[in-house]
């Protein structure tokens, strides 16, 4: 089965304890297929971002397992987690988190440089990726010289430059106006189809969620609904 499912989550629980115990995730079970374009929705505090951070191995669960491509990431060392994040995962956050002192091209190159790819090769790949997200003519611009939508496109290019098998987006259009949101959504969808990568997006935007393959609805850290869309 692990050939079909790129992500298998079993009994995943995350408890934040700071005096008062908060169950952010409460026994979540979820399988995600390779190449799926999936939305996680739910009210604030329902555990959407927590689940996303667990899948992105940015955080560790209190209990339960997460298999990425059949490998249990909850048992990985800090170093292995860094390597897995670099090779298998791409991140897009609500705020683009581009490095302000680097231009668009250099920002898009960063995951490649971190993985040890030569600068000249990284430049080539990142440049292609920026062309793909429609910023071929803005490569020398710094984040403060680009619009919100353009910065988010750079962030997308950066997330995809290492050709990860899973792309994670936490409210990737949350900071953008409707028009930019739609074009970013279309871009993500296009990349998903062309690159056959798995996209998992957390969103508040029900219209955007409705356009994905599947919607996972979280309430109080549990999956309340798991429905396939007919796109």
């Amino acid at each position: 089965m692990s050939d079909t499912y790129i992500i298998q989550i079993k009994d995943l629980t995350k408890i934040f304890g700071n005096g008062v115990e908060i169950r952010a995730l409460d026994g979540v079970n979820l399988n995600i297929e390779r190449g799926e374009f999936l939305a996680i929705v739910g009210p604030s505090g329902s555990g959407k971002s927590t689940l996303l951070n667990q899948i992105g191995i940015l955080d560790t669960p209190t209990s339960g397992t997460i298999l990425l491509d059949g490998v249990d990431v909850t048992k990985m060392s800090d170093k292995q987690r860094s390597i897995t994040r670099n090779r298998q995962l791409g991140f897009i956050f609500q705020y683009h988190h581009l490095l302000p002192d680097f231009n668009a091209l250099e920002n898009a190159m960063m995951p490649l440089l971190i993985s040890g790819v030569k600068s000249s090769r990284a430049r080539e790949v990142a440049s292609l990726m920026l062309h793909e997200v429609g910023l071929g003519d803005r490569m020398e611009h710094r984040p403060n010289q680009l619009s919100g939508g353009q910065n988010q496109r750079v962030a997308i290019a950066r997330a995809l430059v290492n050709n990860p098998s899973i792309v994670i987006g936490d409210e990737p259009t949350g900071n953008l106006d409707t028009k930019s949101s739609e074009s970013i959504y279309e871009l993500l969808r296009k990349l998903n189809r062309e690159h056959k990568q798995t996209f998992i997006l957390v969103t508040h935007d029900e219209r955007m969620a409705a356009k994905t393959d599947r919607i996972i609805r979280l309430v109080d850290g549990r999956i309340a609904a798991n429905s396939h869309n007919s796109v």
Partner: peptide, 8 residues
């Protein structure tokens, strides 16, 4: 973000 990108 550097950590998310895989910087150790």
């Amino acid at each position: 973000m550097l950590m998310a990108m895989g910087a150790s």
